[in-house]
Design a protein around this nucleic acid. Structure first.
Lengths: 151, 151
DNA sequence: CTTGATGCAAATAGTTTGCAGGCTC
DNA sequence: GAGCCTGCAAACTATTTGCATCAAG
């Protein structure tokens, strides 16, 4: 099993470029945090990322995870995902997608819905202001939790 | 100017019924907090509701606002609105609607989008589990903030 | 070398909880 | 009158910040 996550080079190049453009340094921690987020599919919280990374980088501190997540989010490399929980969750920025959230176990899954992506917004919206992002959030109970409940 | 907010009786009846069904009491505080939320259009935070209600009920405590919001939310009378901010925001449960969030001032507006409400979800979703709620969240910058920025 | 980034520890913000007295049913 | 609800204060959780040190460019 590899000790570090291996990730498409283009994404890492984007990280390096975005950081450089903002006059920020490409540090070991930033690289690893971003890598971990690229590899993760479960929209981890800061705390959760910290636990995973600690195995590889024992000296890493939770503060740095928070600071790095804020930095990366500010530069559009990652997204803060809005949930109803108190803990913030994160994902690496990637193609257009939407979220399924289980209200029981809190798991977040992605799904595609091209029909919505291309659908025209209601007329009234254009008067509200400038639209940056259109996202569908679906709440429900995932299959695993449903089956657990039946027992 | 009226000292208390006046609200359609049906909503209040729903509150009374829902509380009674759960074996909970209809207290002055719960009534007023729910009334305030029914009247509000700006999805206020707990702190914000507290400030508004204090004028009418000087003895009200912030803790009670939090506790009451949790109670009402647990019984489906109000919704916690998910935002990217750290503060939770609330709205009285009402007809199907979606949210516009200004990333500058944090204002949340409602809008209708019947096409989405009636649109069929992608096939894959049904395999995920049970769907309770389908919500569109739009992020952008509201007109007021756009104009302020131009100056 | 220089300056921004990190780790540590302490501070904050928002929210929750334990307890004693008050109010609804 | 009995027990849930409230207000008060203190506890908690997630996140942020000040400062001395470290490392990337």
């Amino acid at each position: 099993m590899p000790d570090t996550v291996n990730i498409p080079g283009e994404k890492l190049a984007a990280l390096e470029e975005a950081l450089k453009a903002a006059g920020l340094r490409l540090t070991h921690q930033r690289l690893e945090i971003y890598r971990e987020l690229l590899a993760a599919t479960d929209h981890p919280s800061a705390e959760c990322l910290y636990q995973r990374l600690r195995r590889r980088i024992p000296t890493l501190s939770l503060d740095t995870v928070y600071r790095t997540l804020a930095t990366l989010a500010a530069h559009g490399l990652i997204n803060r995902v809005e949930t109803l929980e108190s803990q913030a969750r994160f994902e690496a920025t990637s193609g257009r997608h939407h979220h399924l959230i289980c209200r029981k176990c809190g798991k977040i899954a992605d799904f595609q819905w091209p029909d919505i992506d291309s659908a025209a917004l209601p007329q009234e919206i254009s008067e509200w202001g400038r639209i940056d992002l259109k996202n569908v959030v679906i709440h429900g109970i995932c299959r695993t939790c449903l089956e657990r409940r039946e027992k």
